[in-house]
Simulated scan of single mutants.
Amino acid sequence: MSVETWTRQIHQNGYCIIPDALDKGTIDKLAGDLDPVFAATPFCKGDFYGHRTKRFGGLLKRSRHMEPLVLHPGILALAETVLGQACDRIQLNVAQAIEIHPGEVCQVPHRDHDMWAGAKGEHEYLLNVIWPLDPFTWENGGTQIYPDSHGARGMTREDLGQPIIAQGKPGAAICFLGSTAHGAGANTTADARRSVIVGYSLGWLKPYENPWLAYPPQVARSFSPELAALAGYVQHRPNLGNYEGQCPSVLLGGEVPTHFPAIDALRPDQASMVAEFARSRRAEP
């Protein structure tokens, strides 16, 4: 996939749909692993989540076939390009499965970045990627995305206009910004439609899904270092998300010490400023 092409599209339109981003075989294996979880999960409660919709998270511990979605090199490159100038590193915001059943009504249009109360418009907070497990169509509740509703200018629009239906087959990646208005469509068919959503956000934000409860150390020890870092086992400079003053990845090794020395984890500019201040104080008579 051409990261430059998709980056240009998502900045221009607020979304992009990447066909064949991943092989269908991997998606089918993931769908098979999630089948019993969908069957056991009760319907949501609430007009936002939906009354004929099922949702559950923690997907990295439910199927080993989730890792290729979360660590997709092209998608990660897109997320870094969209978010990287506003943070030291990105993080996994959510890995959630969604099943919309017949009779579900369309979801209220919304922007996912509104889960955070910070000022909007200067930078993006989030990149979401929907991976269809079933084909997305107008009839079965394919996600409705409002083009050009993103960013500082798009957020001033009083009329969102007409949405497009994010149509795609398993293997496609439907990407949209946190500032892009969207909502699940109504399912007027006789069959449920399923998808997985993977979200990446600025590393200094509180994530939508609590990663340390979803993936406690005994689970995250089986992750690759890159995946563990995305799932919260890393610090965001300066010193955010630390455990006893150290990177929380210390919990994923062998024997974990009872006591730790706290270690600075500063940005280069902060480290230089602190070092200069310390030198000046040591030089004083």
Rank of each mutant, 00 (worst) to 15 (best):
L205W: 00
P170N: 07
N128Y: 01
V108I: 13
D148L: 13
Q107R: 09
E122L: 12
Y233K: 06
G199P: 03
N187H: 07
Y200N: 09
T180A: 06
M155E: 09
P135H: 12
H51V: 12
I75M: 12
G199C: 04
T189I: 08
C247H: 01
N13M: 10
D264F: 13
K24Y: 05
A40P: 06
K45Y: 11
M273L: 14
W116V: 08
W131V: 04
L69E: 02
Y208W: 15
A119N: 14
I10C: 10
S63K: 07
T156M: 11
V94Q: 07
Y125D: 05
L227E: 01
D33Q: 09
W204D: 12
F38C: 04
I197F: 00
E244K: 15
R89K: 13
A190H: 14
A173H: 01
P73S: 12
L133F: 08
P109N: 11
E244I: 04
C247N: 10
Y125P: 00
A271M: 10
D23E: 15
Q162W: 07
R55D: 08
G74L: 07
G185S: 10
A95Y: 02
G121F: 04
A229M: 04
I90V: 15
C16Q: 05
D134G: 11
D112Y: 01
L127K: 10
Y49E: 14
V196I: 12
G253V: 05
T81S: 14
T180S: 06
R89S: 15
Q167P: 06
E226F: 08
H110P: 03
G253D: 10
D28S: 14
D159K: 09
R111N: 03
A229T: 04
D23N: 15
T53H: 07
R52W: 07
G245F: 09
L30P: 02
P147A: 05
K120I: 07
V234G: 01
A166I: 05
V105D: 11
A77F: 04
S149N: 05
T188M: 09
G199M: 01
R194P: 01
A220P: 04
W6G: 03
L227D: 00
G168N: 03
R193Y: 01
Q235S: 13
N93S: 11
M273I: 06
A31W: 02
K54S: 04
I98R: 03
I98D: 00
Q144W: 06
